[in-house]
Amino acid sequence: MFPDEFEYERPETVDEAVDLLVDHPEAEILAGGHSLLPTMKSGLASPDLLVDIGHIDAMQGIDHADGTVSVGALTNYATVDDSPVMRENVTVFAETAHAVGDVQVRNRGTVGGNLAHADPASDLPAAALAADATMVLQGPDGERRVDADDFFLGMYATDVAEDELLTRIEFPARPEATGAYAKKPSPSSGYAMVGVAVSMTVDAGRVEDVGVAANGIMDHGVRLDPVEDALAGTNPDGETVATAATNAANDLDEMMMMDDLQASAEFRAQLLETYAERAITDAATGTGVVAAGPS
C-alpha cells in the first residue's frame, strides 16, 4: 500500500508554511502523519501537495509560564504523557494522551495533528474541552485564538481555515485540579466508541470547578454542560456522581448521535452515562485513566 504520488515541501518556519498554504490552499499538512498517511495509503485521500511541518522547531515542546501551559502543536502524545508539567497542571490532557493508540503511535502522533484532524472517535478533543484549552492559529494575517468550545465544528471539521496552521494549544495551569479519561475503545481500532474526559477541582469537599466532555457520541467532541451543572458546588460522592452522569445525553440530539456497525446511537448514549460516571469518579478520587475491554 503506497500513497499516490504527491509533491512535497518541507518548510522550516511557521511563516514559510503559511506562505505555502496561501499559495496552495488544497495542500494537506503533514505533522506526525498518523492520521493522514493511513488515509493516503488506503486511497481515501490523494493530495497533490504535502506540506511537511515536522521540522518546524518553534512548534515543538511544552512551556509553563504565568499560569499558562503552552503545548506546541507538533508535540507528540508520549511527550505530553511523560511531561511532569502536564501531569501536574493539565492532568486530564496527559491522562488522555496516554489513552491514544499504542507506544509506537504515541511516539509519532502529534497533539496538534489529532485536534486539527478532528476525528469524532479521537481521544484528545474531549480533553481539550474539559481543560478549557485555547487553540492558537497562525494565518497570513497573523495569529488568532479560538476557544476549544468554538473549535470543533463537525466530523473532521474545525475552525482552522485552509491557509491557517494550528501552532500551539494553551491551557490554564490548574495544579489543584484532578483529571481522568474513561473510554470504551473499539475492539478493532482502539478508537473511542465513547470517551469522557473530566477535569475537576474540589475544595473543602465541594466541586469548585469542573469540565466534562465526550468523544465518539456526536460528530465532534462535545462539552456535557448538564453534567457540569449537576456537579458544580456538590460533594462528589458516589450517589451525586451517579446522578450527575444520568444527565450526560440531556443536551444531545439523539437523531445526530453517531450510529454505525460498531455501536448504535442508543448504545452509545447508554455508554456515555456509564463512562461519564467512571471518569468523574476517577477524577474525584484522583486515580486517572480507565479503559475497559481490549484497548
Binding site: G33, H34, L37, P38, V103, Q104, V105, N107, R108
Partner: peptide, 8 residues
Amino acid sequence: AVKSCTVL
C-alpha cells in the same frame, strides 16, 4: 519505537 509503515 515507531511503525515504519506509517513514516515516509
